[in-house]
Design a protein around this nucleic acid. Structure first.
Lengths: 219, 219
DNA sequence: ATTCAACGGAACTAGACAGTCCAGTTTGAT
DNA sequence: ATCAAACTGGACTGTCTAGTTCCGTTGAAT
């Protein structure tokens, strides 16, 4: 490493080196273009031009179109997973289980139902045959992680006597698809115009929790 | 029309004209190749060769790559929708609601969770930006139709006093995603290896109905 | 001020691909 | 047998694209 004081830090990172700045620009253009045109539909000449960078520089940084695509999708998947995970509200001072689950579901929906993330999902699904490892990563960092996280929440609610949950993973999976199934499917197939408004989200979440609770209420 | 006795009928259709035979071969090759390679990843020279047909013939029949793609996907969507719709068991002599719903769900899963239909879904989702009308059609003929169909079933079960269903469409939507959500998402992202076996399907369906019934049981 | 890695710009390779064209052949109905 | 429609095979056009190469320029650290 070049052993300098102004290390390319993570968060604020205002003073970026030329190389890092261009790298960021290339990834930004790659995101826009791959999400809009798909893998085959994206052109490296245009991508370089849109990045304000020469083609040479793109290949110096990423090696190939495939490698750039993989890095972009992996980065987006990881970042989104982190953001979703951070938005889990604490379960310890809960008294109204219904209200808590509604807020929980609303945050999950809010994080996932954005044009950017929905298009990432479409892109990855469409490229399952060409890039199976990206789809696997999205599955792991998306639904699997969300269900695991909810699973520990439900276990805690069971321990506190607020729910009766024998199989927490099963209950979490059911809750997840009760909440996400319809909005996600609609958005996948109908495009961004099917993204529910905040009001629609709240109503949907209310009904979903209403269907979930009878199966797991305390006897 | 050519006013002949051996009209190109629908079902048995053994004696096919040369033209119709070649058309069938082209659509068969198109299905294989578009499902495997996607829209941009499929090549019309190879498609003609794989169909045992000259390129000229392909363009004579379908006009363009886009038109061939649209016709193929539309045909597959419609045919699958019909097949799923035909597999709805009658509701009239039902006494055990749980067993009936389990069978209903199992048939829906059986119809949708095939490599061919799953790959069609991946393809259409990946091409939403280029062919939004195909995605809309798949949504309409797939989930919307399934939920409508189930909705009338649930209404009938409510009328017969076997369930308490105020909002049949809501209940049908919830049932649908309780059943389809997890298997469909896994299959989309993990590929055909995630298709559940008949035994896994039955177990999953049993649990799904178990979660659904408490919310809509008769009081 | 110097130095060197990174960058720009642009041409270039090597191949791919949608769609057209044309001369000659096959098919199937009359 | 006749004949029109459908089909073949292959060449061809125009265009596009991933990746490379070359050479002159820039910028950041010493």
């Amino acid at each position: 490493m070049t052993a300098a004081s102004p290390e390319p830090a993570s968060s604020p990172s205002q003073p970026l080196g030329r190389s890092e700045r261009k790298r960021r620009d290339m990834l930004a253009a790659a995101e826009r273009m791959f999400l809009a045109g798909g893998y085959l539909g994206t052109n490296m000449d245009e991508l370089a031009a849109a990045s304000g960078v020469s083609k040479q520089t793109v290949y110096k940084h990423f090696g190939s179109k495939e490698a750039l695509f993989v890095e972009l999708v992996t980065t987006m998947t990881d970042a989104t997973s982190e953001a979703v995970h951070r938005s889990v509200p604490s379960v310890e001072q809960v008294d109204d289980v219904g209200a808590y689950l509604e807020e929980y579901a609303d945050r999950q929906l809010d994080a996932v139902m954005t044009p950017r993330i929905l298009q990432l999902r479409r892109l990855v699904i469409g490229e399952v045959a060409r890039f199976p490892e990206l789809a696997e990563a999205l599955h792991e960092r998306g639904p699997v992680r969300a269900i695991e996280s909810l699973s520990t929440v439900l276990t805690r609610l069971d321990q506190r006597g607020l729910l009766t949950v024998d199989d927490a993973r099963l209950a979490a999976t059911q809750f997840n698809w009760l909440v996400m199934g319809e909005p996600l499917n609609r958005a996948m197939l109908l495009g961004d115009r099917a993204i529910p408004s905040a009001a629609e989200r709240r109503e949907h979440v209310r009904r979903s929790v209403g269907a979930f609770l009878p199966a797991y209420a305390v006897r």
